[in-house]
């Protein structure tokens, strides 16, 4: 896969530190599953986390904590050690399949008009993430952002005022970017998009519909 748009250092540090909201972490984990470059960078940022732990001034453990830990080990249920069953290869990498409950055919799409469909995935409430299905040639409603939005292309491609994004590419948008993505190319475009604020639509109708569709 020819990935041109990667994750930024800021995002990777927050993912490695574990401070990114779950919705964004899902986009990051899905991109990393598709992108050897960002996987290597993530491992380097994890190494920085390891260094931070190594550099800590020791805080003494309570009396008997080693014995308490050995007791925890003895009491651990056997299935805690079990590894996950391998995921069937499909369009979605494993972290995304875990949230969808399967591959593309398991997605519960809801139409949002103009042939565009979406499926909101359940995560913690500090941000939201959804799958978007945009027929090729169709545009997403014109919108700008209150916060940060991260969009990963899973299939097909889209273009906006900023650039062209193909499969595996990730776009980061903040409040400065007012864009109208259009799906391009032979395939319909399927994206995974996280945002930390509801999108602001610039035309009346979608704004009225916003509470119903939670976009």
């Amino acid at each position: 896969m020819d990935i041109k748009h990667h994750l930024t250092d800021d995002v990777l540090v927050e993912y490695s530190a574990g401070t990114l909201p779950e919705a964004f972490s899902l986009v990051v984990a899905t991109h990393i599953s598709m992108c050897p470059t960002c996987r290597a960078r993530m491992e380097e940022f994890d190494a920085l986390g390891g260094t931070v732990v190594e550099e800590m001034d020791a805080m003494p453990m309570s009396d008997g904590s080693f014995e308490a830990t050995m007791k925890r080990i003895a009491n651990q249920p056997k299935d805690a050690i079990k590894m996950d069953a391998p995921t069937k290869r499909g369009l979605f990498p494993k972290p995304l399949q875990d949230y969808v409950g399967g591959d593309l055919d398991a997605v519960k799409w809801r139409p949002v008009g103009m042939g565009v469909k979406q499926a909101i995935l359940k995560t913690s409430k500090d941000a939201s993430v959804r799958l978007l299905y945009i027929p090729t040639g169709s545009a997403m409603p014109d919108h700008s952002h209150n916060g940060m939005e991260m969009t990963l292309v899973l299939q097909g491609a889209f273009e906006d005022e900023a650039d062209h994004f193909g499969a595996g590419d990730v776009e980061l948008a903040d409040e400065d970017l007012n864009h109208t993505p259009v799906a391009v190319g032979p395939l319909d475009c399927i994206c995974l998009a996280a945002s930390d604020a509801p999108l602001k639509f610039n035309s009346l109708l979608p704004k009225v519909m916003q509470p119903f569709f939670r976009i």
């Binding site: 490695s16 574990g18 779950e22 984990a29 899905t30 599953s33 986390g49 972290p95 913690s124």
Partner: peptide
């Protein structure tokens, strides 16, 4: 560090941690 981070997200932040494949 990665084990501690994941426990923290689970126990303290009470969120899931999506991990790469």
């Amino acid at each position: 560090f990665t084990i501690a981070r994941n426990r923290k997200i689970d126990v303290i932040r009470k969120q899931r941690r999506p991990e790469p494949e």
